[in-house]
Design a protein around this nucleic acid. Structure first.
Length: 810
DNA sequence: TACAGTGCTTTTTTT
DNA sequence: AAGCACTGTA
């Protein structure tokens, strides 16, 4: 019969089999949580629950996609399409569009990402005549964000005595005023930030009984993934949605709660059991992912936390190797060491690039790993950090599209009003903004009626041309899909042409990025998923808004109405997309990401870099026990990503803010029992052994020790040395062989012409037909036979004889 | 109006 | 180191 049930262990079966009533699954790392969730959905449907009545909420798009795919596989039919599976933010965005009128928003509202939101905060601070040195936009934004996650409106914020006291003590009494102005501005712009998607969803359900009842009836079964990471807003929404049927299933692991900075609280797990009369609790304690060695270390680490739900995570997997500890001199050496080790492991144990992950606490740490991997010719990909959609040229293009869909969107409008330059400069913009504020209109309305406001005739003409152009785009909205409009915009604004004409390396990259954006729009358009109904503005109104079946049939019969290929739909999904969600990922590359981004993932071989005090645990997060325990959970998450092998690495000193900074090894390393760890590499890595030791207390200077990697200062033994004994004086047993780096072939532009290199200087940027782009780092050789040493971006250092090679100077 | 140069701040994690 | 804001010049 239901063969899928046979694949489960006893507790898993219990969880899947509990169909009605509240259910809490405490799922340890690697215990088959996703399998249980997906099987449970399938089981619900096998027992007659309509797929339209199931809602599953996750934190990442990737998790949602995976869940959907796996349910589909189990079911073997297309019923899974009707399931409502998505992230909190994307599901609520869809619902809010359909219900926008109930909360006074346009259904084509824009979603502001963090950059947009901070920019609005900054604007508002300036308009209130406050000093943005004192009211730092970053800090203010975080404060507003926390308030929203705690469901505190600006009015409540201002009237809350305790909050006011707190702000007064911090000498920031105007925070409430800023919050209020910010909220009003977003509303005026027809925009919501990420937190609004939760906050407004809560308000919608709270204040509109019909809406609440509608969604309660629709979502008879609700499932929440990563419940330990929910904040108050999410908690209250779930509680409201589930109140009618109480068929709520939450899955979480308190040991993996790492998002308290976003308002998440473990309290939600504890509270869950009190909210309902009979909560079934199932613990999944068998780990199917890691070796015994790795899991023991993880268990040991987490046992140092006081606050936790008791559980006993075990595995039947093999013992595996001890985890390895590596100490290097600098962050650059750390990078080299990891790259060397990857190369070694590939050769010795036949791993592929894709089997490796390098994890770190902060995004800035990716640099040294990146450089080392590039030098070795190992393909890699960085997830997170500066995402594709944050690049200037991409944001510019998207800003145009945003204005077309929602001209109230002032952030986008400001961005493009004079780009490419069209004679509407700062003076004009300032005046328009002032007029908008005085007349309580938005910027777009000022421009549309510019003639009323006494702009100079030249300026007026520029404004009119701009307005006419945008209106022309808008008139195409109902007729054209997202891609066709994007192409039209690119052409009419000559934005693409401008980038194309910029032949510098950076210009080339920018042009390519815009092309990539256009490709992604095309892809989106070519794969129209029927997911909703579109209103006259081209914005998705969700099918959920239609209760009457005949109406749905009517709409299904007019497919144009139902495609999601509109520009509005495209914009909605990209802003909620993380680049970790990008699934082009099955190519053979080493993956680099923060530990946060790695949650929910697993890799055969894992490196955790930067195991140093101030970095991990991070200096910003050691002020309270709670903070420190969260850092420890983060370490726990890092460890439990590994299936077979785990390396922990740290550097004696690393560059931070342009200065070489010395750090002690992480306190977490002391918590690993001696027997579980192989420390034979904790002595400076492949290159640094045999040198004098001691991390010293003297200020490290740049170019220390003359020889690059030599430590000249001898002082007291370092913390690590005291703990782990003196580092080995001999060469390690195995030095990774340097495979000849593979050449990454460069495709020169069709118009590649070699330059006259007789006067080539150090520091100049060049292009080589085969090796690609690089920088001249050294000139040598006789005058009649000059030799340039060039550091190529993709192919490392090469000596080029200028008499023979063809180089183009950039 | 636009760009180049200078000086100043940054110091976590993300939907 | 790097990005940003501000200032001065063409």
């Amino acid at each position: 019969m239901h063969t899928y049930l046979d694949e489960l262990n006893q507790p898993q079966k219990e969880a899947v089999g509990h169909l009605n009533g509240p259910l809490m699954i405490v799922a340890g790392a690697g215990s088959g949580k996703t399998k249980v969730l997906t099987t449970r959905i399938a089981h619900l449907m096998a027992n007659g629950v309509d797929s339209f009545n199931i809602l599953a909420l996750t934190f990442t798009n990737k998790a949602a996609a995976e869940m959907k795919e796996r349910v589909e596989k189990i079911l073997g039919n297309t019923e899974a399409r009707n399931l409502y599976i998505g992230t909190f933010h994307s599901v609520f965005a869809r619902i809010l569009r359909a219900e926008a009128n109930k909360i006074g928003y346009p259904s084509n509202f824009t979603i502001y990402d963090t950059d947009d939101a901070k920019s609005v905060v900054k604007t508002v601070i300036k308009e209130l005549d406050l000093d943005d040195k004192h009211y730092k936009p970053n800090v203010v934004y975080n404060r507003i964000s926390s308030a929203k996650n705690d469901l505190i409106s600006s009015a409540e914020y201002i009237n809350d005595w305790a909050i006011q006291q707190e702000d007064a003590r911090a000498n920031r009494p105007q925070l409430g005023a800023i919050y209020d102005a910010y909220a009003k501005r977003c509303f005026k712009n027809g925009a919501m930030d990420f937190d609004d998607l939760l906050f407004k969803m809560y308000l919608l359900l709270k204040n509109n009984p019909e809406s609440l009842s509608k969604y309660q009836r629709k979502f008879k079964y609700v499932m929440i993934d990563e419940y330990q990471d929910t904040n108050k807003a999410q908690y209250e929404i779930v509680k409201l949605l589930g109140a009618m049927h109480e068929n709520i299933c939450v899955v979480g692991d308190d040991a993996q709660s790492i998002y308290s900075f976003r308002g998440a609280t473990i309290e939600n797990i504890l509270q869950f059991q009190k909210d309902y009369d009979e909560v079934k609790v199932v613990k999944l304690e068998q780990n199917y992912r890691s070796t015994k060695s790795i899991l023991s270390v993880a268990n040991e680490i987490i046992s140092n936390n006081k606050n936790q739900i008791e559980k006993n995570l075990f595995t039947d997997n093999e013992q595996g190797e001890k985890i390895k500890l590596v100490r290097t001199m600098t962050d650059n050496d750390e990078g080299k060491n990891v790259a060397d080790t990857i190369q070694e492991q590939k050769l010795r144990n036949h791993y592929f690039n894709k089997d490796f992950a390098i994890l770190y606490r902060t995004n800035a740490q990716s640099r040294s790993f990146e450089e080392a991997l590039r030098r070795m010719g190992i393909a890699y990909r960085i997830y997170g950090g500066m995402s594709f959609y944050q690049r200037k040229e991409v944001k510019d293009m998207i800003a145009y599209l945003r204005v077309v869909v929602n001209p109230q969107d002032e952030e986008a409008l400001k961005r493009i009003i004079n780009y490419p330059a069209r004679g509407i400069g700062k003076t004009t913009l300032d005046k328009a903004v002032l007029l908008a504020n005085e007349n309580n209109l938005n910027l777009w309305q000022i421009f549309c009626n510019a003639v009323m406001y006494g702009f100079k005739s030249g300026t007026l003409e520029s404004i009119d041309n701009f307005v006419t152009m945008i209106k022309m785009f808008q008139s195409e909205l109902p007729k054209k899909n997202a891609y066709d409009i994007a192409i039209l915009v690119g052409k009419s604004t000559s934005l693409v042409k401008e980038l194309f004409n910029d032949k510098t390396t950076e210009g080339l990259a920018r042009y390519e990025n815009v092309q990539e954006l256009l490709n992604s729009i095309k892809e989106f358009v070519d794969d129209p998923i029927i997911q909703g109904v579109i209103n006259e503005d081209g914005v998705i109104i969700d099918s959920i808004g239609i209760e009457d079946e005949s109406k749905i049939n009517e709409l299904v019969n007019s497919p144009a109405q139902l495609t999601s290929a509109s520009l509005g739909a495209y914009l909605q999904q990209i802003v909620l997309l993380t680049d970790a969600d990008d699934n082009k990922g099955e190519i053979d590359v080493v993956k680099l990401m923060t530990i946060h981004a790695a949650k929910g993932l697993e890799f055969p071989v894992v490196f955790v870099g930067g195991m140093e005090e101030t970095l991990f645990p991070n200096a910003m997060a050691i002020n309270t026990r709670e903070e420190l325990e969260e850092e420890r959970r983060l370490f726990y998450v890092a460890i439990t990503r590994a299936k077979h092998k785990l390396w922990l690495t740290y550097a004696n000193a690393r560059y931070r803010f342009g200065q070489l900074q010395q750090n002690d090894s992480s306190r977490f390393l002391e918590e690993i029992p001696e027997d579980f760890v192989d420390k034979s590499y904790a002595g400076g890595g492949v290159k640094n052994t045999g040198n004098s030791w001691g991390s010293g207390t003297q200020q490290m200077q740049r170019g220390f020790g003359g020889g690059g990697n030599t430590w000249a200062n001898k002082n007291t033994a370092s913390e690590a040395e005291k703990r782990y004994g003196a580092p080995p004086k001999t060469t390690p047993s195995y030095v990774a062989p340097k495979a000849p780096p593979k050449l990454i072939e460069h495709e020169p532009a069709a118009d590649f012409i070699a330059s006259d290199t007789s006067n080539l200087q150090e520091g100049q940027k060049v292009e080589h037909q085969k090796f690609g782009f690089g920088e001249v780092i050294k000139m040598e050789g006789a005058a009649h036979n000059p030799i340039a040493t060039v550091q190529f971006e993709l192919n490392g250092e090469k000596k080029i004889m200028l008499n023979y090679a063809k180089l183009r100077i950039i």
